[in-house]
């Protein structure tokens, strides 16, 4: 068995090792957040006496709030601390004897989590779509879902780079989890995980759509929901692709600089 397959299989076993954690997370977190978001929007729809706000019906809004947090979860992969902990306690030393590239190994473990959550997204979205939208399920929707899943998976690589940039500050600072949390706040807000970007003022939207966050979250969500035209989806995808090499090069440069600082002993 090649090392990437071994790494993926080990990580998958770790994910499902704590079963109570897994189910509480999967059902509790996803469903409770969805119910709360739906309750808020239901109240807004009723108090305004409208059936459509910002181009969303209540059913579509519910699907949006099912997809957006799940997309965020996929992007966040292994979550905060996946690299900074090892920098902090000297755990990076193991890569001196392991025949693996450290960042390649980290990317693979990160994407294993992302891939696992992607399955949750595909399953929950299909169930949600059938329950919340009366229209018949068409082949084009399935194809959009497949395209969206692929899009999110590539976006996860971009978000991994952003997370790495935060985590690698640990080469210089003692405690960097706060940077990961800040990134999460900014990404969720500017990416449209809290509110669809169509509700933002136009001037803000014109800037936000060129930042990576919107391309990472709103782009795939709108693609899956069929809310973006092919041209809009392609533009969003292009923005994401444009950011990937920039982020990748930044990670490479910081890794190189950080390694010169690394002492190999726990701080």
């Amino acid at each position: 068995m090649s090392w990437p397959v071994r790494v993926v299989s080990t990580e998958l076993r770790k994910i499902i090792a704590y079963r109570s954690d897994f189910w509480v997370n999967f059902l509790g977190q996803t469903l409770i957040q969805l119910f709360i978001a739906r309750a808020l929007w239901q109240s807004i729809f009723e108090s305004n006496g409208q059936t459509e706000i910002g181009g969303f019906t209540l059913g579509q809004m519910t699907l949006y709030y099912l997809l957006a947090p799940l997309t965020m979860k996929i992007l966040m992969g292994e979550n905060i601390g996946f690299l900074s902990r090892e920098i902090y306690d000297g755990g990076l030393n193991r890569y001196l004897v392991w025949p693996l590239p450290p960042l390649g190994y980290k990317l693979l473990t990160y994407l294993t989590y992302s891939g696992f959550y992607l399955l949750q997204l595909a399953l929950l979205y299909t169930l949600g779509r059938l329950a919340l939208d009366a229209r018949p399920y068409e082949l084009s929707e399935f194809l959009r879902l497949l395209a969206g899943v692929g899009y999110v998976f590539i976006a996860a690589i971009g978000y991994f780079c952003l997370m790495c940039l935060c985590e690698m500050v640990a080469f210089w600072a003692d405690n960097t989890w706060t940077l990961g949390v800040m990134l999460r706040f900014v990404a969720a807000f500017l990416g449209g995980a809290f509110l669809p970007l169509s509700f933002f003022p136009e001037a803000a939207r014109n800037i936000i759509e060129y930042l990576p966050f919107a391309a990472f979250i709103s782009g795939p969500v709108n693609l899956i929901l069929g809310r973006s035209t092919p041209a809009e989806a392609l533009q969003s995808f292009a923005v994401m692709l444009a950011w990937l090499p920039v982020l990748g090069l930044a990670v490479k440069a910081l890794w190189k600089k950080g390694n010169l600082q690394y002492t190999g002993v726990g701080m």
Binding site: Y18, S20, D21, F22, W23, V24, N25, G28, Q29, I32
Partner: peptide, 10 residues
Amino acid sequence: TQSGKGFNDF
């Protein structure tokens, strides 16, 4: 449960 992660995240 031995791990507080699930409930904490919840």
